[in-house]
Computed example of a mutant assay.
Amino acid sequence: MGREFIDLFDQWAESYDETVSSKDNEYHEVFNQYEEILDRVANESYGTVLEFGVGTGNLTNVLINKKLNVIGVEPSPVMREKTAERFPELNVVDGDFLSFPDFDETIDTIVSTYAFHHLTDKEKEQAIRNYGKLLGNNGKIVFADTVYEHEDAKKEIHERVRNQGYKNLLHDLLTEYYTTLGVLTEIFDKNGFDVSFERLNRYVWLIHAVKKDT
């Protein structure tokens, strides 16, 4: 359920912000237009927002600046410490996409950036099913993450990265649980959401899902 990556998150905590802002490392296309991506997610959010994988708090900062009520969930102790230093008043709890405390507030929006791929497709479906029960009327899910357009695109991207000599990025793409738009469409539709997708850079798509009326 993504917790197998906690050691990676802990190690990455010190250099994460440098990685996302750099124009020269092998992840530069993954994080291309990073600030704009955070803005898009925040602009689609409303009310009380539950953020999964707060990391160092970059999306959190944008959400707070838009006067949204944010609850953070983060499995990495090091990342939680960094976010707590940055936002002392923020409620950040130990948890992940599948395991988190109960909340007293009604959740209006569930958000995440660069993290949902840490779940297998089976776990993704379990998460979305749980979120349908958690969200209030007109609730929505707004994620931004690396997704493959289809299986052929997956092969093309892997070959491109291999030819670029980006060994770390290729390792991530081969070992983490990146999925396709088709799989996500089926998961959201099956669990009572109207979902749409918008490409934000070569790798990242905006996933916008609205809970259907029941």
Rank of each mutant, 00 (worst) to 15 (best):
W12C: 07
Y34W: 14
L184V: 02
T48F: 01
Q164R: 15
L170N: 09
D96H: 07
G55C: 12
P77E: 08
V41R: 00
P88A: 03
H208V: 01
N163K: 15
D39L: 06
L90T: 10
G57L: 12
R80E: 08
Y34N: 02
T185R: 13
L181V: 01
K154S: 03
F143N: 00
N91E: 14
D39A: 11
K133P: 00
S15F: 09
R3P: 03
D96E: 10
P75L: 05
V73C: 13
V93P: 02
N91H: 07
N65P: 03
G47L: 07
L184Q: 05
V183K: 12
E35P: 00
G165T: 13
V49W: 04
Q33W: 03
V78M: 05
L90M: 12
N58Q: 14
D17Q: 09
A144C: 14
Y34A: 01
R40P: 02
L174S: 12
I128Q: 05
R80L: 08
K212I: 09
G182M: 04
A42M: 03
A42P: 09
G139D: 06
G57V: 09
T214A: 07
Q164C: 11
E29V: 04
D10K: 11
D10V: 13
P77I: 11
I110F: 06
V147M: 10
N25D: 15
R202S: 08
M1P: 09
D39M: 07
P88I: 04
T83Q: 05
P77N: 11
I157M: 15
T56F: 06
T56L: 09
G53W: 10
F188Q: 07
D94T: 14
I207Y: 06
S45R: 01
T109Q: 03
V49K: 03
S76P: 12
N69L: 08
S21N: 13
A153V: 06
D94R: 11
L59F: 11
L200D: 04
Q164A: 11
Y148E: 02
K190W: 03
K155Y: 10
F197M: 00
I128K: 05
D172V: 10
D213V: 08
E35G: 01
T146Y: 07
E159A: 14
W205L: 00
L184M: 13
R129D: 09
T106R: 02
